[in-house]
Design a protein around this nucleic acid. Structure first.
Length: 339
RNA sequence: GGCGGCAUGGCCAAGUGGUAAGGCAGCGGCCUGCAAAGCCGUUAUCCAUCAGUUCGAAUCUGAUUGCCGCCU
């Protein structure tokens, strides 16, 4: 990788760390956080709650869907009982029709980390949304919040003049970024052009300057691991359990409340499947089948994300004592870890 | 017991003499303000088995096995 080029990156990363004070110095009193991540459905919540109780810690959820109110069965939100066992943050913080993104997440979650650190509480960051965890731990490059008008206009341009034209524009404007973005990746083409327009700078420069070198916290990252077959099995069973608990009714309720099926939140796994069934686009069997399949695929994507993280320690969820020891060691050991 | 049909990768399935479409499922990967989203790549030395015809067969012939129909 290219983490060697740090002298440039540090200056621009500053803004993101302001919330924590002097972020880039590896001072001994950096807040310590323990990240518990892993694929969906393997039982992160249960493990995390147990650990939180043991360490008198609070949990910051790192889950891009549990932030939504009214979406509880399909997102496998921690139960009231579990939340009573350990205080949870970043859950139920926005309505399903409100916009939210990784930068907002990082800002809020970092503030909570600092606050808890000030109170002397230990912090567990628990979740499966890789980008949110990365944004919390390393920050994102600084830019103005996306201008909805620019984004909207670019989306319209895709319709009118075609994505290939936009892609060629990007190739001309920012060849470095274009080289990393596939011509079919509308999502990132638009984002790159949007940043270029809003800031006047190529996104590739901003990326390079940032470089994820910012490290305001001391982090222990634990990935919960389970064999693929066993995981898929659990996922299939958990989907059945969600349905038993009334997933269909929950989605029906959201629609009744006026939350449209094409909201981002309603397009997530489980919600879109139930909505498609309600609207008659899918048979019940198809809805359940594809719901299970899409959950499995999601878990697989998460695994490739986490597998790439060299600082992550894979541990077995069935051996909580080993995890506990690891955390104890991390919390007590004052010498800085390699990270 | 007799007659007929069908046997192609995990599943569905095209291909009737010239060197194995496609879909699904799976697998591998990407990811810097929509991330449970979005995107890319990949999967049969071989067509039930054996023998034969042919320069050449998944494709033709015969036998065997299995499955499905119909008949006595």
């Amino acid at each position: 990788m290219d983490k060697a080029i740090s002298p440039v990156g540090i200056t621009s990363g500053r803004g993101g760390t302001s919330v924590t004070g002097q972020g880039e110095t590896h001072s001994i009193d950096r807040p310590r956080i323990i990240v518990i991540c892993g694929p969906t459905g393997l039982g992160k919540t249960a493990v995390a709650v147990t650990l939180a109780e043991a360490f008198h810690a609070e949990i910051i959820s790192a889950d891009s869907m549990q932030i939504y109110r009214h979406m509880t069965i399909g997102t496998a939100k921690p139960t009231p009982l579990e939340q009573a066992g350990a205080p949870h943050h970043m859950i139920d913080i926005v309505d399903p029709d409100q916009s939210f993104d990784a930068a907002q997440y990082a800002r809020m979650a970092r503030a909570i980390v600092v606050d808890l650190h000030g109170k002397g509480r230990s912090v567990l960051v628990v979740g499966g949304t890789g980008l949110y965890i990365k944004a919390l731990v390393h920050g994102l490059f600084q830019a103005e919040p996306p201008d909805p008008h620019i984004r909207q206009r670019l989306k319209e341009e895709v319709e009118t003049i075609g994505m290939d034209v936009l892609y060629r524009r990007l190739v001309a404007d920012d060849p470095a970024a274009a080289g990393k973005i596939h011509a079919n990746d509308q999502f990132r083409i638009i984002r790159a052009l949007e940043v270029r327009e809003a800031t006047g700078q190529p996104i590739s420069d901003l990326h390079q300057a940032h470089g994820f070198v910012d490290e305001p916290f001391a982090v222990l990252k634990i990935g919960l691991h389970m064999e693929r077959d066993a995981l898929y099995d659990r996922i299939n069973r958990r989907v059945d359990a969600m349905i038993d608990k009334g997933l269909l009714a929950e989605v029906q309720g959201l629609l009744t409340m006026g939350y449209s099926a094409d909201l981002k939140s309603m397009q997530s796994i489980g919600y879109r499947h139930m909505a498609a069934f309600i609207q008659g686009h899918l048979s019940w069997d198809e809805a359940v089948r594809t719901l299970k399949r899409d959950t499995r695929r999601y878990a697989k994507r998460q695994l490739t994300w986490f597998n790439k993280d060299p600082g992550l320690l894979w541990m077995n969820p069935d051996n909580p004592d080993a995890i506990r020891l690891q955390i104890e060691h991390f919390l007590q050991n004052r010498q800085t870890e390699p990270q």
